[in-house]
Design a protein around this nucleic acid. Structure first.
Lengths: 201, 201
DNA sequence: GATTCTATTGATCACATGATCAATACTGTG
DNA sequence: CACAGTATTGATCATGTGATCAATAGAATC
Protein backbone atom coordinates (compact mmCIF):
# COMPACT_ATOMS: atom_id res chain seq x y z
CA UNK A 1 0.00 0.00 0.00
CA UNK A 2 3.00 2.25 0.66
CA UNK A 3 1.90 5.85 0.34
CA UNK A 4 -0.17 5.47 -2.78
CA UNK A 5 -3.52 7.18 -2.88
CA UNK A 6 -4.63 6.69 -6.46
CA UNK A 7 -5.00 9.54 -8.92
CA UNK A 8 -4.71 13.12 -7.80
CA UNK A 9 -7.83 14.38 -6.09
CA UNK A 10 -9.71 17.12 -7.95
CA UNK A 11 -8.85 20.53 -6.70
CA UNK A 12 -11.40 22.00 -4.35
CA UNK A 13 -11.94 25.09 -2.25
CA UNK A 14 -10.20 24.92 1.14
CA UNK A 15 -13.58 25.18 2.83
CA UNK A 16 -15.01 22.36 0.74
CA UNK A 17 -11.98 20.20 1.39
CA UNK A 18 -12.13 20.94 5.07
CA UNK A 19 -15.76 19.88 5.06
CA UNK A 20 -14.90 16.69 3.16
CA UNK A 21 -12.22 15.78 5.65
CA UNK A 22 -14.44 16.52 8.61
CA UNK A 23 -17.17 14.39 7.09
CA UNK A 24 -14.78 11.50 6.49
CA UNK A 25 -13.62 11.75 10.08
CA UNK A 26 -17.21 11.61 11.35
CA UNK A 27 -18.01 8.60 9.18
CA UNK A 28 -14.98 6.71 10.44
CA UNK A 29 -15.74 7.57 14.05
CA UNK A 30 -19.27 6.23 13.72
CA UNK A 31 -18.25 2.99 12.06
CA UNK A 32 -14.90 2.13 13.62
CA UNK A 33 -14.72 4.36 16.66
CA UNK A 34 -13.00 7.61 17.53
CA UNK A 35 -9.74 5.75 17.99
CA UNK A 36 -9.78 4.81 14.33
CA UNK A 37 -9.86 8.43 13.23
CA UNK A 38 -6.31 8.50 12.03
CA UNK A 39 -4.58 10.62 9.44
CA UNK A 40 -4.30 7.86 6.90
CA UNK A 41 -7.76 6.47 7.51
CA UNK A 42 -9.36 9.86 7.06
CA UNK A 43 -7.26 10.51 3.97
CA UNK A 44 -8.27 7.21 2.41
CA UNK A 45 -11.93 7.80 3.15
CA UNK A 46 -11.78 11.33 1.74
CA UNK A 47 -9.90 10.12 -1.34
CA UNK A 48 -6.95 12.31 -0.59
CA UNK A 49 -3.28 12.02 0.31
CA UNK A 50 -2.50 11.70 4.02
CA UNK A 51 -0.39 14.84 3.85
CA UNK A 52 -3.44 16.84 2.85
CA UNK A 53 -5.27 15.81 5.98
CA UNK A 54 -2.28 16.90 8.00
CA UNK A 55 -2.22 20.13 6.02
CA UNK A 56 -5.77 21.00 6.99
CA UNK A 57 -5.44 19.73 10.55
CA UNK A 58 -4.41 22.96 12.17
CA UNK A 59 -4.62 21.72 15.71
CA UNK A 60 -3.11 18.38 14.82
CA UNK A 61 -5.06 15.15 14.63
CA UNK A 62 -6.41 15.79 18.11
CA UNK A 63 -8.44 18.68 16.76
CA UNK A 64 -9.89 16.57 13.95
CA UNK A 65 -10.92 13.91 16.43
CA UNK A 66 -12.46 16.51 18.69
CA UNK A 67 -14.36 18.03 15.75
CA UNK A 68 -15.62 14.63 14.68
CA UNK A 69 -16.94 14.05 18.17
CA UNK A 70 -18.57 17.46 18.36
CA UNK A 71 -20.15 17.01 14.95
CA UNK A 72 -21.63 13.60 15.67
CA UNK A 73 -22.89 14.39 19.12
CA UNK A 74 -24.06 17.86 18.13
CA UNK A 75 -26.20 16.43 15.37
CA UNK A 76 -27.70 13.90 17.73
CA UNK A 77 -28.53 16.68 20.14
CA UNK A 78 -30.22 18.66 17.38
CA UNK A 79 -32.32 15.70 16.37
CA UNK A 80 -33.39 14.94 19.90
CA UNK A 81 -34.09 18.60 20.56
CA UNK A 82 -36.39 18.64 17.54
CA UNK A 83 -38.12 15.53 18.82
CA UNK A 84 -38.62 17.12 22.21
CA UNK A 85 -39.88 20.35 20.72
CA UNK A 86 -42.44 18.48 18.63
CA UNK A 87 -43.80 16.45 21.53
CA UNK A 88 -47.22 17.50 22.85
CA UNK A 89 -46.16 17.54 26.50
CA UNK A 90 -43.07 16.98 28.71
CA UNK A 91 -43.89 13.38 29.62
CA UNK A 92 -44.28 12.41 25.99
CA UNK A 93 -41.11 14.29 25.14
CA UNK A 94 -39.21 12.41 27.83
CA UNK A 95 -40.53 9.09 26.62
CA UNK A 96 -39.64 9.88 23.05
CA UNK A 97 -36.19 11.05 24.02
CA UNK A 98 -35.37 7.91 25.96
CA UNK A 99 -36.86 5.70 23.31
CA UNK A 100 -34.63 7.14 20.64
CA UNK A 101 -31.54 7.28 22.84
CA UNK A 102 -31.73 3.76 24.23
CA UNK A 103 -33.56 2.12 21.37
CA UNK A 104 -30.42 0.60 19.94
CA UNK A 105 -30.33 2.62 16.74
CA UNK A 106 -27.89 5.06 18.30
CA UNK A 107 -25.39 2.59 19.71
CA UNK A 108 -22.72 3.98 17.44
CA UNK A 109 -23.16 7.40 18.96
CA UNK A 110 -23.05 5.91 22.44
CA UNK A 111 -19.77 4.24 21.60
CA UNK A 112 -18.43 7.60 20.47
CA UNK A 113 -19.44 9.10 23.79
CA UNK A 114 -17.71 6.43 25.82
CA UNK A 115 -14.58 6.52 23.72
CA UNK A 116 -14.54 10.30 24.05
CA UNK A 117 -14.59 10.06 27.82
CA UNK A 118 -11.64 7.71 27.73
CA UNK A 119 -9.62 9.54 25.07
CA UNK A 120 -10.39 12.88 26.66
CA UNK A 121 -7.77 12.13 29.25
CA UNK A 122 -5.03 12.40 26.62
CA UNK A 123 -6.66 14.82 24.19
CA UNK A 124 -7.44 18.16 25.79
CA UNK A 125 -9.27 19.47 22.75
CA UNK A 126 -11.53 16.46 22.89
CA UNK A 127 -12.07 16.84 26.61
CA UNK A 128 -13.19 20.40 26.04
CA UNK A 129 -15.59 19.35 23.31
CA UNK A 130 -17.00 16.68 25.60
CA UNK A 131 -17.64 19.20 28.34
CA UNK A 132 -19.37 21.55 25.91
CA UNK A 133 -21.65 18.85 24.60
CA UNK A 134 -22.48 17.71 28.11
CA UNK A 135 -23.45 21.24 29.01
CA UNK A 136 -25.73 21.41 26.00
CA UNK A 137 -27.38 18.14 26.91
CA UNK A 138 -27.79 19.27 30.48
CA UNK A 139 -29.52 22.41 29.26
CA UNK A 140 -31.91 20.47 27.04
CA UNK A 141 -32.92 18.01 29.72
CA UNK A 142 -33.17 20.67 32.39
CA UNK A 143 -35.53 22.67 30.18
CA UNK A 144 -37.62 19.59 29.66
CA UNK A 145 -37.79 18.92 33.39
CA UNK A 146 -38.68 22.49 34.18
CA UNK A 147 -41.49 22.45 31.65
CA UNK A 148 -42.78 19.26 33.22
CA UNK A 149 -42.65 20.74 36.69
CA UNK A 150 -44.50 23.81 35.52
CA UNK A 151 -47.23 21.75 33.91
CA UNK A 152 -47.49 19.64 37.03
CA UNK A 153 -46.45 16.47 35.24
CA UNK A 154 -43.18 16.11 37.13
CA UNK A 155 -42.59 16.60 40.81
CA UNK A 156 -38.99 17.62 41.28
CA UNK A 157 -37.44 20.13 43.65
CA UNK A 158 -34.17 20.78 41.81
CA UNK A 159 -34.53 20.54 38.01
CA UNK A 160 -30.83 21.05 37.42
CA UNK A 161 -29.90 18.14 39.68
CA UNK A 162 -32.67 16.03 38.19
CA UNK A 163 -31.39 16.64 34.68
CA UNK A 164 -27.94 15.67 35.80
CA UNK A 165 -29.29 12.44 37.26
CA UNK A 166 -31.24 11.58 34.15
CA UNK A 167 -28.17 12.04 32.00
CA UNK A 168 -26.04 9.96 34.31
CA UNK A 169 -28.59 7.20 34.05
CA UNK A 170 -28.74 7.33 30.27
CA UNK A 171 -24.97 7.44 29.95
CA UNK A 172 -24.51 4.62 32.41
CA UNK A 173 -26.90 2.27 30.65
CA UNK A 174 -25.40 3.20 27.32
CA UNK A 175 -21.93 2.33 28.49
CA UNK A 176 -23.13 -0.97 29.89
CA UNK A 177 -24.81 -1.85 26.63
CA UNK A 178 -21.52 -1.35 24.78
CA UNK A 179 -20.20 -4.67 26.05
CA UNK A 180 -23.59 -6.23 25.53
CA UNK A 181 -24.46 -6.52 29.18
CA UNK A 182 -28.02 -7.06 30.26
CA UNK A 183 -31.04 -7.68 28.10
CA UNK A 184 -31.01 -5.08 25.36
CA UNK A 185 -34.56 -5.89 24.40
CA UNK A 186 -36.52 -3.81 26.92
CA UNK A 187 -33.59 -1.61 27.82
CA UNK A 188 -35.45 1.46 26.72
CA UNK A 189 -38.62 0.55 28.63
CA UNK A 190 -36.75 -0.15 31.86
CA UNK A 191 -34.81 3.04 31.54
CA UNK A 192 -37.96 5.04 30.95
CA UNK A 193 -39.61 3.63 34.05
CA UNK A 194 -36.54 4.40 36.15
CA UNK A 195 -36.31 7.96 34.90
CA UNK A 196 -40.02 8.56 35.38
CA UNK A 197 -39.58 7.41 38.93
CA UNK A 198 -36.73 9.84 39.43
CA UNK A 199 -38.86 12.69 38.12
CA UNK A 200 -41.91 11.77 40.17
CA UNK A 201 -44.01 11.36 37.06
CA UNK B 1 16.62 4.06 24.57
CA UNK B 2 16.77 1.44 21.80
CA UNK B 3 16.13 -1.92 23.39
CA UNK B 4 18.31 -1.48 26.44
CA UNK B 5 16.89 -2.57 29.74
CA UNK B 6 19.81 -2.27 32.10
CA UNK B 7 21.44 -5.27 33.74
CA UNK B 8 19.96 -8.69 33.46
CA UNK B 9 17.04 -9.25 35.78
CA UNK B 10 17.59 -11.83 38.52
CA UNK B 11 16.23 -15.20 37.64
CA UNK B 12 12.86 -15.95 39.17
CA UNK B 13 10.22 -18.65 39.20
CA UNK B 14 7.83 -18.42 36.27
CA UNK B 15 4.96 -17.92 38.72
CA UNK B 16 6.80 -15.14 40.52
CA UNK B 17 7.69 -13.46 37.25
CA UNK B 18 4.15 -13.76 36.02
CA UNK B 19 2.97 -12.10 39.21
CA UNK B 20 5.54 -9.34 38.82
CA UNK B 21 4.42 -8.64 35.28
CA UNK B 22 0.77 -8.66 36.23
CA UNK B 23 1.47 -6.28 39.07
CA UNK B 24 3.39 -3.92 36.80
CA UNK B 25 0.50 -3.98 34.35
CA UNK B 26 -1.97 -3.09 37.08
CA UNK B 27 0.19 -0.24 38.34
CA UNK B 28 0.49 1.23 34.86
CA UNK B 29 -3.22 0.91 34.23
CA UNK B 30 -4.03 2.78 37.41
CA UNK B 31 -1.59 5.60 36.78
CA UNK B 32 -1.62 6.05 33.00
CA UNK B 33 -4.69 4.17 31.91
CA UNK B 34 -5.38 0.79 30.35
CA UNK B 35 -4.25 2.11 26.99
CA UNK B 36 -0.77 2.64 28.38
CA UNK B 37 -0.41 -1.02 29.29
CA UNK B 38 2.01 -1.82 26.53
CA UNK B 39 4.66 -4.47 26.22
CA UNK B 40 7.55 -2.07 26.65
CA UNK B 41 5.92 -0.06 29.41
CA UNK B 42 5.18 -3.17 31.44
CA UNK B 43 8.67 -4.49 30.83
CA UNK B 44 10.27 -1.25 31.99
CA UNK B 45 8.12 -1.14 35.10
CA UNK B 46 8.88 -4.75 35.93
CA UNK B 47 12.59 -4.22 35.29
CA UNK B 48 12.66 -6.80 32.56
CA UNK B 49 13.28 -7.04 28.83
CA UNK B 50 10.23 -6.48 26.61
CA UNK B 51 10.68 -9.91 25.11
CA UNK B 52 10.13 -11.46 28.51
CA UNK B 53 6.74 -9.82 28.83
CA UNK B 54 5.84 -11.18 25.43
CA UNK B 55 7.14 -14.57 26.53
CA UNK B 56 4.77 -14.71 29.49
CA UNK B 57 1.85 -13.14 27.64
CA UNK B 58 0.23 -16.31 26.44
CA UNK B 59 -2.89 -14.67 25.11
CA UNK B 60 -0.97 -11.75 23.68
CA UNK B 61 -0.99 -8.28 25.15
CA UNK B 62 -4.78 -8.31 25.08
CA UNK B 63 -4.79 -10.93 27.80
CA UNK B 64 -2.43 -8.91 29.98
CA UNK B 65 -4.64 -5.86 29.62
CA UNK B 66 -7.71 -7.91 30.43
CA UNK B 67 -6.01 -9.38 33.49
CA UNK B 68 -4.93 -5.96 34.68
CA UNK B 69 -8.52 -4.78 34.43
CA UNK B 70 -9.88 -7.82 36.24
CA UNK B 71 -7.30 -7.48 38.97
CA UNK B 72 -7.95 -3.82 39.63
CA UNK B 73 -11.70 -4.00 39.50
CA UNK B 74 -11.83 -7.29 41.35
CA UNK B 75 -9.89 -5.84 44.24
CA UNK B 76 -12.19 -2.84 44.36
CA UNK B 77 -15.17 -5.15 44.48
CA UNK B 78 -13.63 -7.11 47.33
CA UNK B 79 -13.02 -3.96 49.32
CA UNK B 80 -16.51 -2.64 48.78
CA UNK B 81 -18.00 -6.03 49.58
CA UNK B 82 -16.13 -6.00 52.88
CA UNK B 83 -17.44 -2.52 53.59
CA UNK B 84 -20.97 -3.62 52.87
CA UNK B 85 -20.64 -6.72 54.98
CA UNK B 86 -19.40 -4.69 57.94
CA UNK B 87 -22.21 -2.14 57.79
CA UNK B 88 -24.88 -2.43 60.48
CA UNK B 89 -27.81 -2.25 58.06
CA UNK B 90 -28.55 -2.00 54.31
CA UNK B 91 -29.08 1.79 54.26
CA UNK B 92 -25.75 2.38 55.97
CA UNK B 93 -24.10 -0.09 53.63
CA UNK B 94 -25.51 1.72 50.62
CA UNK B 95 -24.34 5.07 51.92
CA UNK B 96 -20.88 3.74 52.64
CA UNK B 97 -20.66 2.12 49.25
CA UNK B 98 -21.57 5.26 47.36
CA UNK B 99 -19.34 7.40 49.52
CA UNK B 100 -16.32 5.29 48.75
CA UNK B 101 -17.17 4.86 45.07
CA UNK B 102 -17.90 8.51 44.29
CA UNK B 103 -15.71 10.09 46.90
CA UNK B 104 -12.96 10.87 44.47
CA UNK B 105 -10.38 8.50 45.90
CA UNK B 106 -11.28 5.90 43.32
CA UNK B 107 -11.20 8.03 40.22
CA UNK B 108 -8.34 5.98 38.85
CA UNK B 109 -10.48 2.87 39.02
CA UNK B 110 -13.35 4.69 37.36
CA UNK B 111 -11.07 5.68 34.53
CA UNK B 112 -10.10 2.04 34.14
CA UNK B 113 -13.75 1.11 33.89
CA UNK B 114 -14.50 3.67 31.20
CA UNK B 115 -11.43 2.80 29.21
CA UNK B 116 -12.35 -0.87 29.47
CA UNK B 117 -15.76 -0.22 27.97
CA UNK B 118 -14.16 1.58 25.06
CA UNK B 119 -11.29 -0.87 24.52
CA UNK B 120 -13.59 -3.82 24.96
CA UNK B 121 -14.84 -3.25 21.46
CA UNK B 122 -11.48 -4.28 20.04
CA UNK B 123 -10.27 -6.63 22.77
CA UNK B 124 -12.58 -9.57 23.20
CA UNK B 125 -10.72 -10.89 26.24
CA UNK B 126 -11.19 -7.54 27.90
CA UNK B 127 -14.85 -7.41 26.95
CA UNK B 128 -15.35 -10.78 28.60
CA UNK B 129 -13.61 -9.63 31.76
CA UNK B 130 -15.77 -6.52 31.81
CA UNK B 131 -18.94 -8.59 31.58
CA UNK B 132 -17.78 -10.84 34.41
CA UNK B 133 -17.00 -7.95 36.69
CA UNK B 134 -20.30 -6.31 35.92
CA UNK B 135 -22.10 -9.50 36.83
CA UNK B 136 -20.24 -9.61 40.13
CA UNK B 137 -21.16 -6.01 40.90
CA UNK B 138 -24.75 -6.64 39.97
CA UNK B 139 -24.83 -9.56 42.39
CA UNK B 140 -23.39 -7.49 45.22
CA UNK B 141 -25.80 -4.61 44.78
CA UNK B 142 -28.76 -6.87 44.25
CA UNK B 143 -28.00 -8.67 47.50
CA UNK B 144 -27.80 -5.34 49.26
CA UNK B 145 -31.13 -4.22 47.83
CA UNK B 146 -32.80 -7.49 48.73
CA UNK B 147 -31.56 -7.24 52.30
CA UNK B 148 -32.94 -3.74 52.48
CA UNK B 149 -36.30 -4.80 51.15
CA UNK B 150 -36.47 -7.63 53.65
CA UNK B 151 -35.69 -5.32 56.54
CA UNK B 152 -38.25 -2.86 55.29
CA UNK B 153 -35.68 -0.13 54.70
CA UNK B 154 -36.09 -0.13 50.92
CA UNK B 155 -39.30 -0.27 48.96
CA UNK B 156 -38.55 -1.86 45.62
CA UNK B 157 -40.54 -4.33 43.56
CA UNK B 158 -37.74 -5.73 41.39
CA UNK B 159 -34.38 -5.87 43.21
CA UNK B 160 -32.52 -7.06 40.14
CA UNK B 161 -33.74 -4.14 38.06
CA UNK B 162 -33.06 -1.76 40.94
CA UNK B 163 -29.49 -2.99 41.24
CA UNK B 164 -29.05 -2.49 37.55
CA UNK B 165 -30.33 1.06 37.82
CA UNK B 166 -28.09 1.89 40.77
CA UNK B 167 -25.05 0.66 38.88
CA UNK B 168 -25.98 2.60 35.78
CA UNK B 169 -26.26 5.71 37.89
CA UNK B 170 -22.90 5.17 39.56
CA UNK B 171 -21.20 4.37 36.27
CA UNK B 172 -22.76 7.34 34.54
CA UNK B 173 -21.67 9.84 37.16
CA UNK B 174 -18.23 8.31 37.24
CA UNK B 175 -17.84 8.69 33.51
CA UNK B 176 -19.00 12.28 33.67
CA UNK B 177 -16.52 13.06 36.42
CA UNK B 178 -13.68 11.79 34.21
CA UNK B 179 -13.77 14.95 32.13
CA UNK B 180 -14.30 17.01 35.26
CA UNK B 181 -17.92 17.89 34.56
CA UNK B 182 -20.16 19.14 37.29
CA UNK B 183 -19.27 20.01 40.81
CA UNK B 184 -17.18 17.19 42.17
CA UNK B 185 -17.52 18.48 45.72
CA UNK B 186 -20.88 17.05 46.70
CA UNK B 187 -20.96 14.50 43.92
CA UNK B 188 -21.18 11.69 46.40
CA UNK B 189 -23.97 13.34 48.41
CA UNK B 190 -26.08 14.06 45.34
CA UNK B 191 -25.59 10.56 44.06
CA UNK B 192 -26.60 9.09 47.39
CA UNK B 193 -29.79 11.10 47.50
CA UNK B 194 -30.67 10.07 43.96
CA UNK B 195 -30.07 6.40 44.65
CA UNK B 196 -32.01 6.50 47.89
CA UNK B 197 -34.88 7.97 45.95
CA UNK B 198 -34.68 5.15 43.43
CA UNK B 199 -34.78 2.59 46.21
CA UNK B 200 -37.63 4.25 48.07
CA UNK B 201 -35.52 4.64 51.19
C1' DG C 1 33.02 -29.68 38.91
C1' DA C 2 30.57 -30.82 34.71
C1' DT C 3 26.14 -30.90 32.64
C1' DT C 4 21.46 -30.13 31.75
C1' DC C 5 17.59 -27.22 31.87
C1' DT C 6 15.34 -22.98 31.24
C1' DA C 7 14.62 -18.04 32.43
C1' DT C 8 16.18 -14.10 30.15
C1' DT C 9 17.86 -11.28 26.58
C1' DG C 10 19.28 -8.68 22.08
C1' DA C 11 18.32 -8.14 17.59
C1' DT C 12 15.13 -7.68 14.35
C1' DC C 13 10.48 -7.81 11.66
C1' DA C 14 6.41 -5.81 9.85
C1' DC C 15 3.43 -2.47 10.60
C1' DA C 16 1.12 1.95 12.13
C1' DT C 17 1.17 6.55 13.92
C1' DG C 18 1.75 11.96 13.37
C1' DA C 19 4.43 15.25 11.13
C1' DT C 20 7.29 18.04 7.76
C1' DC C 21 8.80 19.88 3.21
C1' DA C 22 10.14 20.44 -1.29
C1' DA C 23 8.07 19.44 -5.60
C1' DT C 24 4.06 19.14 -8.55
C1' DA C 25 -0.23 20.17 -11.06
C1' DC C 26 -4.15 22.60 -11.40
C1' DT C 27 -7.09 27.15 -11.45
C1' DG C 28 -8.01 31.60 -12.10
C1' DT C 29 -6.18 36.10 -13.36
C1' DG C 30 -3.86 39.36 -16.25
C1' DC D 1 -1.79 32.50 -23.86
C1' DA D 2 1.43 33.15 -20.21
C1' DC D 3 1.79 33.46 -15.39
C1' DA D 4 1.12 33.70 -10.62
C1' DG D 5 -1.01 31.54 -6.77
C1' DT D 6 -2.08 27.55 -4.23
C1' DA D 7 -4.22 22.99 -3.52
C1' DT D 8 -2.20 18.62 -3.59
C1' DT D 9 1.19 15.14 -3.40
C1' DG D 10 5.40 11.85 -2.65
C1' DA D 11 9.03 10.94 0.04
C1' DT D 12 10.78 10.63 4.31
C1' DC D 13 11.51 11.05 9.56
C1' DA D 14 11.14 9.79 14.22
C1' DT D 15 8.54 7.14 17.07
C1' DG D 16 5.73 3.42 18.92
C1' DT D 17 3.40 -1.06 18.65
C1' DG D 18 3.22 -6.46 19.07
C1' DA D 19 5.79 -10.40 17.90
C1' DT D 20 9.50 -13.97 16.92
C1' DC D 21 13.91 -16.50 17.58
C1' DA D 22 18.44 -17.76 18.18
C1' DA D 23 21.72 -16.89 21.69
C1' DT D 24 23.03 -16.25 26.52
C1' DA D 25 23.50 -16.82 31.51
C1' DG D 26 22.36 -18.65 35.75
C1' DA D 27 20.46 -22.28 38.72
C1' DA D 28 19.66 -27.07 39.74
C1' DT D 29 21.08 -31.71 39.18
C1' DC D 30 24.19 -35.42 38.86
Amino acid sequence: MSTASGPRAPRRTPDERRADIARAARDIALVDGLGAVTMRAVAARAGVAPALVAHYAEGGMDAIVADAFAGIVGQELDEVAALVADAPAPPAALAEMIRTLAGGERDAVTAVWVEAWALGRRNEALAGAVRSQMDAWQALVQGLVEAGVESGAFGVADPAAAAWQVLAMIDGTGAQALVRWGETADRSALLLRAVEGMLGA
